[in-house]
């Protein structure tokens, strides 16, 4: 047990450890530490604890939350005056988030879910944002969306065709919450956004180095986004056709 006489040093020890000590206090403490083994042990204990605490896993904000808040910030509840057509250059935000915000901000004027899909895809590629539910089992991924969406997106695994299901997440697109299914193809990632829509017609799209293939089926709109080449992305879309969309 520590020496009761040393108690008055404890908060100084701690302040020193936290980098909050003034120079004169630090000098006094140094003199005391030189002659007090108990306080030196106390200091080492604080250091060991800090090291342990700083190694604890961080809880990064879920992708869906980030998406929702980005949208909230870009579209306040008030009737908004004309928006400036620019993305801000907040250094810490990073290019991907800026691109995403820009896309979301532009949505009300020029609804282009495909462009927004690319922005969502880029944002999701940032560490820790890709999947909310991580599973290659469609029977795990599909129920995960229950209660998170007001519709049931079709979920299929195409691992046997070389497009394994990796997981899913909630995203925000075309003015609503949508299901994003995540597939792998070699080292590429495919995001497939699915939401109910009576829109018809297929489309292909190349922008910012990303390929987009969109189609309709079963009352749903499908938008696949990836840096995968167009031919293989078409192959992925065709699998959904074969699966009876």
């Amino acid at each position: 047990m520590t020496n009761p006489a040393c108690e008055r040093w404890h908060l100084l020890l701690q302040a020193d450890h936290d980098g909050e000590l003034t120079a004169s206090e630090a000098t006094d403490l140094m003199v005391h530490l030189a002659g007090c083994a108990a306080c030196r042990a106390e200091r080492d204990g604080l250091a060991a604890l800090s090291e342990g605490l700083r190694a604890l896993p961080r809880h990064a904000a879920p992708a869906a939350l980030r998406a929702a808040l980005t949208r909230q910030a870009a579209m306040p509840p008030a009737a908004a005056p004309p928006r400036p057509r620019r993305a801000w250059a907040g250094g810490a935000l990073g290019l991907a988030l800026a691109a995403c915000i820009a896309a979301v901000m532009l949505l009300p004027r020029a609804p282009d879910p495909d462009a927004a899909a690319i922005a969502s895809h880029i944002r999701a590629l940032q560490p820790g944002h890709l999947t909310d539910v991580l599973s290659s089992d469609q029977h795990t991924v599909k129920p995960w969306f229950n209660g998170r969406l007001d519709y049931a997106p079709p979920v299929r695994d195409f691992a046997s065709a070389g497009y394994p299901l990796l997981g899913g997440r909630l995203d925000y697109l075309a003015g609503r919450d949508v299901a994003a299914l995540v597939y792998g193809r070699d080292r590429h990632i495919i995001d497939l956004f699915v939401w109910p829509s009576d829109q018809s017609g297929s489309a292909e799209h190349v922008a910012s180095g990303y390929n987009t293939v969109a189609w309709n089926g079963g009352g749903m709109r499908f938008v696949a986004v990836s840096d995968l080449n167009m031919a293989e992305l078409r192959g992925f879309a065709a699998l959904w056709g074969d699966a009876g969309r």
Partner: peptide
């Protein structure tokens, strides 16, 4: 309004992970 929203986003979004 929009200015408030963009100012807020600039201040808050970089700290979203810390907030969560």
């Amino acid at each position: 309004d929009t200015d408030d929203a963009s100012r807020f986003a600039r201040i808050a979004l970089p700290h979203l992970d810390a907030a969560f």
